Simulated scan of single mutants.
Amino acid sequence: MALSIGIGAAPLTGSATAAPLPTLPIGALKYTVDVNAGATPGYVYYSSGISAAALVPGVSKAVSGIPAATSANIVVDKAGREVWRYDPPAGQDVSNFRTQTYHGKRVLTWWQGETVGGHGSGADYIADEHGRVIEKLDAGGAPTDVHEFRLTPDGRALVTSYHKVDADLTAIGGPKNGTMYDAVASVVDVATKRVLMRWSAARHVPLTDATATDKLPGSDAYDPFHINSIALDPDGDLVISMRDTSTVYDVDIRTGAIKWRLGGKHSTFTLGRGVQFAFQHDAEFASSNTIRLFNNNSSGFETDGLSSVQWIRLDHATHRATLVRNQTHPDNLVAFAMGDAQPIPNGNTLVGWGMAPHISEFTPSGKMVYDARLPFGTYRAYPADWAPTH
Rank of each mutant, 00 (worst) to 15 (best):
D233C: 14
T322R: 14
G120S: 01
T101E: 13
D250A: 10
Y181V: 04
P357W: 00
W110H: 04
F285H: 08
L232H: 10
Y181S: 05
T32C: 14
S186G: 08
T101Q: 15
L323D: 07
S121F: 02
L314S: 12
K136N: 02
S60T: 14
G140R: 11
L21T: 11
G300S: 11
G113C: 05
V324D: 03
A19F: 03
L55P: 04
G173I: 09
V351R: 07
I50T: 10
V324G: 04
K61T: 13
M338S: 07
N348V: 06
R194K: 06
R132E: 00
D331W: 11
L108Q: 00
V56E: 02
A191K: 15
F149Q: 04
D214E: 15
Q100T: 02
R150E: 14
D371Q: 14
L238P: 12
T247N: 06
D189H: 01
G91N: 09
G91L: 07
L216T: 02
T70N: 14
A257K: 14
I26L: 15
L293C: 06
Y43L: 08
S241W: 03
T23L: 05
V83M: 05
V248K: 11
A317L: 08
T115Y: 15
R106Q: 11
G118C: 10
D168C: 02
L271N: 04
D315F: 05
P375F: 12
S246G: 10
G80T: 02
A37I: 05
Y249A: 06
A283D: 00
A384F: 04
A278D: 11
K61P: 05
H147T: 12
V59L: 11
E148P: 04
K259V: 14
A257H: 13
V239E: 06
R156C: 10
D182A: 15
G263D: 10
Y162K: 02
S4R: 14
S47Y: 00
R254T: 05
S307D: 05
V251N: 00
Q100E: 10
W311R: 13
D87A: 12
H204R: 15
A202H: 09
Y379P: 01
T23I: 07
T23F: 04
L216Q: 11
T363H: 05
D250H: 08
G174Y: 01
Y162G: 00
I74P: 00
S298I: 07
L216N: 02
A2Y: 15
S229C: 04
M197V: 01
G174H: 00
F285C: 09
L323V: 06
N228T: 02
A341G: 04
G65Y: 06
L196C: 01
V107N: 01
A321S: 05
